[in-house]
Write a protein that binds this DNA or RNA. Sequence first.
DNA 1: CTGTATACTATACACGCGCATAGGAGCCCG
DNA 2: CGGGCTCCTATGCGCGTGTATAGTATACAG
Lengths: 200, 200
Amino acid sequence: MKELTARQKEILNFIHEYLHDNSYPPTVRETARAFSISVKGAYDHLKALERKGYIKTSEKRSRAIELVTPPESDMPVVQIPLLGEIAAGRPIFADENFERTVAIPADIITNRVPHFALHVKGDSMIGAGILSGDIAIIEQSETAKNGDIVVALLEETVTLKRFFIENNRYRLQAENPHYAPIYTQDLRILGKLRGIYRSY
Amino acid sequence: MKELTARQKEILNFIHEYLHDNSYPPTVRETARAFSISVKGAYDHLKALERKGYIKTSEKRSRAIELVTPPESDMPVVQIPLLGEIAAGRPIFADENFERTVAIPADIITNRVPHFALHVKGDSMIGAGILSGDIAIIEQSETAKNGDIVVALLEETVTLKRFFIENNRYRLQAENPHYAPIYTQDLRILGKLRGIYRSY
DNA sequence: CTGTATACTATACACGCGCATAGGAGCCCG
DNA sequence: CGGGCTCCTATGCGCGTGTATAGTATACAG
């Protein structure tokens, strides 16, 4: 990939920022305006970026700028499904649960057990530093040890809680004093918490 | 989020597919053509999707469709350096600081601004759900806005704190009632917190 | 010195574009 | 039965848009 000039780097940077802010690419004129240059000036820069392989454009289409993501790196990465609402009585990996996939560093998945991800809702685990909106990476498992944080299916709901086995019942413990522990004899463990990811 | 009709789901699906293929959103007319309906027909569908909260549009701009929950099925990953002890008065990226690299989802790195990662030490930010041992992903930056969580260099130490500008001093605020805010006029911001990653 | 690249200005064309108005047909709910 | 939603057609306005032509200035390599 050919070297970019300082100006061209600025333009490419602008496209990145614009895409981050708007999630669609800028027009030629918006690019021109951002740098207070003429339309053709910006147009030529875009063509230069395309010639050097940093972007792709489509003829005669507005905002038709595609970033050619440089191969960057081929890290060991695993794609795991991010599940939305999990309904009781249905397989976890049913299509209806599927929201999208997330990439996670492969090194946290030690064994070959399937993993999935969940959006955390609510503040019941703030004591463990898990906030609403965090993405929880879960190792699928039917069992857990005392004190593990697990995803458990409880009648109609799915919760993330700390898990304990007591005499003849299970205890699901929130990490928030405002939530009382849940005692039950009937629960299904869906998996164990392996990681937390949060984006600011 | 309100329920979509079957037709509206088709339209939303088309936008997803189009974005996956082109990495920029379709125009109203392209949407109309894809379903062999009139322009206004497609336009009304888009407005319905916006009304129900599934997309966002900007007035009078071509292709200005933003997905409210983006699909992004193949999230690329980049490698950033994980820094250990940062010494005052030395460049951040000096070899002696380098611990290893970590892979993080590339979509949190918007522009070409360098990022790095740090091991969080101590419990001063537990109120923000940041625990000792977490990996903090930092966007390198010399400046920050009020309320940002920043990595700041303070005489001999590096800390992660919430940052505020006051009359003629800076305030570094922990998210833990046991820690008093730090007031100073002399500080250097190393970067802004962009993500948190924790492994169990 | 000449050719090629960058980095612009200014003006223009034709078509794509978002959006509006004015309809019509089918549906379900109170 | 009427009112409101969905889903559609057809036509049009006017501006935004990609793209072209022509020209200027500067830098650098052969």
